[in-house]
Simulated assay, not measured.
Amino acid sequence: MSKIYIYSSLLFVTLLWGLNVIATKILVTTFAPVTMTSFRIFTAGIVAFLILFSFKKVKVVSFTQLRYIFIASLFNVVGHHFFLSIGLTKTSASNAGLILGLSPLISVVLATLILKNKLTITKAIGISTGFTGVCFVILNGASNISGISIGDLFIFLSIATQGFSFVMIKKVTSTLDPTIMTAYMLIFGSIILFILSTIVEPDGLSSMRNGSLEVWLIFFASAIFATGISHMIYNRAIQEIGVAESAIFINLIPFFSLIGAVTFLNEKISILQVSGFLFIVIGVLLGSGTLDRRLAIFRNRTLRKETI
């Protein structure tokens, strides 16, 4: 598989993920958010299993693998999507997209704390820069700290729970194909979300009758393409070119979210949000180690040329 094809696929995936923030914003204002999310994730899980079945990759997992998958799904699917769906009912899509862009930095912080990964000066500067960018975003329009949107805090919790799940995923993907794990996580997580929705949204099922044809098209596009297929493509790219190189494209998600919010929701973008976006992107490039890795590759290539 050529790198041009892989890069094009990753660009397409990040476009879908950025616009999916807009799609989810529309869906949570039409349906009961948690109930709708459980159905959307379940649909994505079915799509993921159909793809695996077509490639004859479906397999039964061991009890140990199942335990890690279940724990990871609690954070990666249940926690992440619960806070995301609730948060989007209380904040703008543009703010949500920008805060979600902090996800790689959250993973670095948790990996440092839990997996004892080395924290370099560059990474520390990147983490500080990224969180400064988020402060710009969540303080946008707030005269003081008490004016911060609760929705922004929920969005931040959504990426914090997702980041913790990556620790669990790292423990099991050494023995299990990540695409298979993703499919199981989507199914497990959607079932738990549905059970949770019956508690927090007693009338959630009745709200599912409210959608127009256009809204249902958005629902299935979000479930099938932005959640099911895109995760399979991204996991495939990780296998082909590695985690580090694939993660570079994550930086484009806030950009596509901002463009989508302006285009489809007519949201106004402020100077603070643009500043926050720039700080977050710079922070992720530094904090995730992406810049260090690219510089190391450049230095090695230069040294090889000099020795020839």
Rank of each mutant, 00 (worst) to 15 (best):
I280H: 01
L88P: 05
I297M: 12
L286W: 02
I155S: 09
T263N: 07
M208D: 10
V243I: 12
Y68G: 10
I145N: 06
Y68A: 02
N140S: 15
S62L: 03
I159F: 04
I148E: 04
L186Y: 14
L66R: 04
I191G: 02
V60Q: 05
P178K: 00
R299P: 04
G204M: 02
S212K: 07
L11M: 08
Q239E: 13
A48N: 04
N300I: 08
N95A: 09
R293V: 11
G228A: 06
L10V: 05
C135V: 14
V78W: 01
S222K: 02
L50F: 11
V134C: 07
S257I: 05
T175N: 13
L50W: 06
L15S: 15
S197Q: 03
I308K: 06
E240P: 11
V21R: 02
A44Q: 02
F219L: 06
Q65T: 05
K170N: 11
I71C: 03
V172P: 05
I238S: 11
L176Y: 02
Y184T: 00
Q65G: 09
K59V: 10
V262C: 10
I187S: 03
I308Q: 10
I229G: 13
K25D: 09
V77W: 00
T302H: 05
F188D: 01
S246W: 07
A261V: 08
V200S: 11
I46R: 02
T120S: 14
I218Y: 00
W216C: 05
H231C: 04
L196G: 00
T29S: 09
T64D: 11
G242E: 03
S143T: 11
G87K: 00
A244H: 14
L102G: 04
I187H: 00
D177I: 08
W216I: 10
G101V: 01
A72K: 02
L88I: 03
T227W: 02
I148C: 07
P254S: 13
N144K: 00
S54M: 06
L186R: 01
S190R: 04
G260N: 08
T173Q: 08
A111R: 08
I233F: 10
L205W: 02
L115F: 13
S149C: 04
F136I: 15
I121T: 15
D177V: 04
E306F: 07
I121D: 12
A124H: 07
G133Q: 08
T173N: 10
S92I: 05
L11K: 01
F164I: 15
I6T: 14
F279H: 08
Q239M: 14
G189H: 00
G97R: 06
A160N: 03
F256R: 12
Y68K: 06
S174K: 13
F39W: 10
H231T: 07
T161Y: 07
G151T: 08
L295Q: 05
L217W: 09
S92K: 09
I187F: 01
R236N: 12
F154W: 06
G18C: 11
F166G: 00
V243A: 12
V281W: 02
G147W: 12
T91L: 01
G242K: 14
L105E: 04
S143F: 06
A93I: 00
I159E: 06
L213K: 11
I253L: 15
S230N: 05
C135K: 07
F188L: 15
K3F: 05
S54Q: 10
T120W: 13
V243N: 13
V284R: 08
A296Y: 09
G18S: 09
F136G: 07
T122N: 14
